[in-house]
């Protein structure tokens, strides 16, 4: 009997302790449950890319409101091939193109830019004005799976008009000097270390060399893969869709072949600065030029060392209230 009583007692005790324990833990858990889901709904993905450009192609990134991005792009001469090698110090003696650009954020979605570039072909002294607008932003919960940014630029050439009417620079008036680029930049950040972009482009040049195309469609793809917290490998590829017969004619006339532009590089982000060290066969930097006019061949050593430096300045007034 005694033992049974004891067991009963101990069971009772156990039950009470259990109840108390459950109560206690219920209270704690419930308290946290009361908070509900604190994560914001459909949160926007930030920093799909760290810079407004990969190497040759634009990313979906724009400049935040009241911030200014100052960017220098530089392309040296061919590393190898007939124009490279030790005589030209692996291309470092030449600069095929240099671009100095400013971009300013009018809002967190819209930025406006102005740039001056040397220009890589006979079409030189380029002045570019551009607008970039974030149309759609990817969300972390994949409610919106991709980001879409629109890019539009107008580039005027300042080079002295050529007398040769078949030349690409035989301008008759100012409007001949204008070139337009429209891009729809589709991007997705797959995870914290990999982002991808696909960009259809439309390039319109008011004046081109004889039988060169005024209107040209192209497709670009690019990716960024982080190798450390601050460093990433970047690659981009641009493929213009040229009209076959015109391309054959031009290639026969000049003895050159049109190529797709491929770039590969290392991006280093230091908080405020983004450095990019790259190799690409594209001699030009401006979209209206590198998309239609890339003729250098990677396999012939006609790729170059290039770099870009981007520095961000903020003009936001400091928040006075604390």
């Amino acid at each position: 009997m005694k033992t049974i009583l004891l067991t009963k007692k101990s069971i009772c005790l156990l039950l009470v302790t259990m109840m108390l324990a459950t109560l206690q833990s219920f209270g704690q858990q419930d308290l946290e449950k009361e908070l509900g889901n604190t994560a914001p709904a459909h949160e926007k993905v930030s920093a799909t890319f760290k810079s407004t450009k990969l190497i040759n192609v634009h990313t979906n990134e724009t400049i935040f409101k009241n911030e200014l991005d100052f960017r220098i792009d530089h392309r040296f001469g061919d590393i190898a091939g007939s124009n490279g090698g030790i005589r030209r110090f692996f291309g470092l003696d030449n600069a095929t193109d240099v671009r100095i650009g400013f971009e300013y954020g009018l809002s967190d979605r819209l930025s406006v830019g102005f740039a001056r570039a040397k220009g890589a072909t006979e079409v030189q002294q380029l002045y570019e004005g551009n607008l970039k607008y974030r149309l759609i932003e990817q969300t972390t919960d994949d409610y919106i799976p991709v980001a879409v940014t629109l890019f539009g630029s107008t580039t005027a050439t300042g080079v002295t008009a050529s007398d040769d009417p078949s030349s690409g620079t035989a301008y008759r008036n100012f409007s001949d000097r204008l070139n337009f680029v429209t891009q729809v930049i589709i991007a997705r950040k797959f995870n914290s270390s990999f982002s991808f972009t696909l960009t259809p482009s439309y390039v319109h040049r008011n004046f081109t060399a004889f039988r060169d195309q005024n209107d040209l469609f192209a497709l670009s793809a690019g990716g960024r893969a982080k190798i450390s917290k601050r460093m990433a490998l970047v690659v981009d590829y641009t493929m213009p869709f040229r009209n076959g017969s015109d391309q054959d004619y031009l290639e026969q006339q000049s003895g050159i072949k049109y190529r797709n532009a491929l770039g590969a590089g290392l991006e280093i982000e230091t908080g405020g600065h983004v450095f990019n060290l790259n190799f690409t066969n594209a001699t030009a930097i401006e979209e209206m030029q590198f998309i239609p006019q890339t003729t250098s061949n990677w396999l012939k050593g006609q790729f170059r060392w290039g770099f870009s430096i981007a520095r961000r300045f903020s003009f936001n007034k400091k928040n006075k209230e604390k």
Binding site: A39, P40, S46, A47, F64, S314
Partner: peptide, 19 residues
């Protein structure tokens, strides 16, 4: 939520969250 912090400088906000 860490992403709910608003910085006067948006680039700083990006660095705060990412890095």
């Amino acid at each position: 939520s860490n992403t709910s912090f608003q910085f006067p400088k948006k680039l700083m906000q990006e660095h705060f969250n990412e890095n």
